[in-house]
Design a protein around this nucleic acid. Structure first.
Lengths: 137, 137
DNA sequence: ATCCTTATTGCGAACCATGTGCAATAGTTG
DNA sequence: CAACTATTGCACATGGTTCGCAATAAGGAT
């Protein structure tokens, strides 16, 4: 997915802050806080303001190319968008956040819709626990 | 579950702020923000400070008798603790938050543990969407 | 019931993540 | 290149949540 296209399609401009924030989001496979992203941006261009980072992130989320999740302590975590099917496994020991795919979410959605008339737009699953690495020792 | 017992077991004191916060949590079947709880407390005793409300809530959550969830805009939501099996259905139209029980979570836990070595301590499922009431019209 | 000890409070200020108004800057289109 | 205006940087506002500390009150002992 190319930032340029998505922005162009919506008649939005491709600016340096937006490009940098996007590159960092894409290149990291972590779930970064806005602050962490701002820090990373600053190593490449110290003149870019935190506000622009926040503005870029909110924009990306509105455009559907970034996803905001709330876990952990210090504010929201950001990552490139992925399907709801991908749920989050947060290890309480090493702090790693992994994705896990399956049909759980789809099944849940279907069940809620057909049996309870609840039409879901967005499903968020966060599992806290101990990952296999950490529970090994 | 009696507040007094839980507190006594942990050599903690039963104070007016704690009792009021607990009563409000128990009597409401909503998911209240700390601020809303503070407001409710104030109608009964205006002299109680917000800090004490926050302190009570964090304490209750440590004691395992209250649960903090993060959805919506304005901060965390609080409710008396319930099993992970109860997932949250948040209606984007009317704002209602409903509980929904099932085996989804247990199945997910088992799957993650046996097939992926991820031992989950706590599972959080938030489904955003439109409830049957709202989608009716 | 009263005294003592110390957990807990109220207060105010601090903090942190996030949003905003506005003048200056820089994409984009012609 | 020029012009139009979306977007930025700045500095400040905001809203939720925490903290230090002196004053207060819970609960056990006398």
């Amino acid at each position: 997915m190319h930032l340029e296209e998505v922005l162009a399609e919506n008649e939005l401009r491709v600016t340096r802050p937006r490009r940098l924030v996007w590159d960092i989001l894409r290149s990291s496979n972590d779930h970064l806080t806005a602050q962490a992203i701002a820090d990373a941006v600053h190593t490449q261009d110290a003149s870019i303001n935190v506000s622009s980072v926040y503005r870029a992130l909110t924009l990306f989320s509105e455009l559907g190319i970034a996803r905001e999740s709330k876990f952990g302590e210090d504010g929201s975590r950001w990552e490139p968008a992925h399907s709801d099917e991908m749920i989050h496994l947060v290890c309480e020991k090493c702090g790693t956040v992994d994705h896990h795919g399956g049909q759980v979410v789809t099944r849940l959605r279907d069940h809620l819709a057909s049996d309870h008339g609840f039409v879901s737009s967005n499903v968020n699953v966060v599992v806290n626990g101990t990952c296999s690495n950490c529970s090994a020792q």
